[in-house]
C-alpha cells in the first residue's frame, strides 16, 4: 500500500533522514520505534507531505506522492494524528471533528463518520460543545484521532499517541487503535514506548539517527537482544 524508498529529508542543512525505506501492506499495523531525534516524526511528516524529501520516493498505491502538497495527500486517504495532538484548542469538540472532514463533500457520509467517532469515543459526544483546549490530555488525544478518522483515511499515521498520558489512558487508546485497525484502516504507528508498540503491531522498524537499523515482525523484534537492550530497558 505504502512504500517509502530511500528518502533523504533535510531541515535546512540538517540531514534528518539518511535513506529511510519502509513498506506498509494493506490491513497491517506497522510501528516505527527509536529514540528521540531518530527521525520518526520526520518520516511521518515526509509521508504526509508537510516536508518533502530531497531524494527518494514515497509510493502510495504505486504512485509517487513525495512532492505533492499536504492537502492533496490527505485527499488520497493518508491522515496523520500529529505529535502533541495539535487539536484546535479554541474550537469546540464538534468543530474540531468537522475540520477533519474538510475535504469531503458527502454530507451523509460525514454524518455517519461523526456518529462512528462518537461511538468509538463516547466522552467526545458528551463534551461536543466544550472547547478542545479544556479537555484532558487523553481526551485531546481521542479528539485528535477522531479528527483524523473524519477524513476517512485508508492509512492512519499516529505520532506518539501515548505521549504524556497516564498508563491506564494509554492502554485504552491502544485498545481503540487496534479496533480501528480491525475495522479496516491500515496503521503506521510511531512510538517511543517500544514495549507497547511492539505489543500491538504486526511488523516494526527501528530507526536510529535517520536510518533504519532493524526491521522485522514485531514478535521477533521484541525478542531481539539489541532491541531489548536499547529500547526495552533491559540490562
Amino acid at each position: 500500500m505504502l512504500k517509502v524508498e530511500e528518502i533523504h529529508t533535510y531541515y535546512d542543512h540538517i540531514h534528518a533522514l539518511k535513506g529511510v525505506s519502509l513498506e506498509i501492506r494493506e490491513g497491517e499495523i506497522v510501528c516505527l520505534i527509536g529514540s528521540n531525534g531518530a527521525g520518526k516524526s520526520t518520516t511521518l511528516m515526509t509521508i504526509s507531505g508537510v516536508l518533502h524529501p530531497a531524494r527518494g520516493r514515497v509510493l502510495f498505491d504505486g504512485q509517487d506522492i513525495a512532492h505533492r502538497p499536504a492537502d492533496r495527500i490527505v485527499g488520497l486517504g493518508i491522515c496523520q494524528v500529529p505529535e502533541g495532538r495539535r487539536i484546535l484548542p479554541r474550537l469546540s469538540v464538534a468543530d474540531n471533528l468537522e475540520m477533519g472532514a474538510f475535504l469531503r463533500r458527502d454530507r451523509e457520509g460525514i454524518r455517519q463518520d461523526l456518529e462512528k467517532v462518537y461511538e468509538l469515543f463516547p466522552v467526545l459526544a458528551e463534551r461536543r460543545r466544550q472547547q478542545g483546549g479544556t479537555l484532558s490530555g487523553g481526551e485531546q488525544q481521542m479528539l485528535a484521532i477522531g479528527r483524523a478518522l473524519m477524513g476517512r483515511p485508508r492509512l492512519l499515521l499516529l505520532d506518539e499517541p501515548s505521549l504524556g498520558l497516564a498508563p491506564i489512558v494509554v492502554e485504552k487508546i491502544f485498545g481503540i487503535i487496534q479496533q480501528i485497525n480491525r475495522d479496516g484502516t491500515t496503521i503506521l504507528l510511531v512510538e517511543q514506548n517500544a514495549n507497547l508498540a511492539l505489543g500491538v503491531s504486526d511488523r516494526a522498524y527501528v530507526l536510529e539517527t535517520g536510518r533504519v537499523t532493524l526491521s522485522g515482525p514485531s514478535r521477533e523484534l521484541a525478542h531481539d537482544e539489541r532491541v531489548r537492550k536499547a529500547y526495552l530497558g533491559e540490562q
Binding site: A70, C79, L88, L91, L103
Partner: peptide, 25 residues
C-alpha cells in the same frame, strides 16, 4: 463558509490545518 472555517483553523494551528487537508498557502 468552508473557507471561513479553514481560515480559523489556520489561525489556530497552521500545521494541524495542513494535516486536515487545508491548502494553507
Amino acid at each position: 463558509s468552508r473557507v471561513g472555517r479553514a481560515w480559523v483553523s489556520i489561525r489556530e494551528d497552521e500545521t494541524a490545518a495542513e494535516l486536515t487537508g487545508i491548502d494553507t498557502l
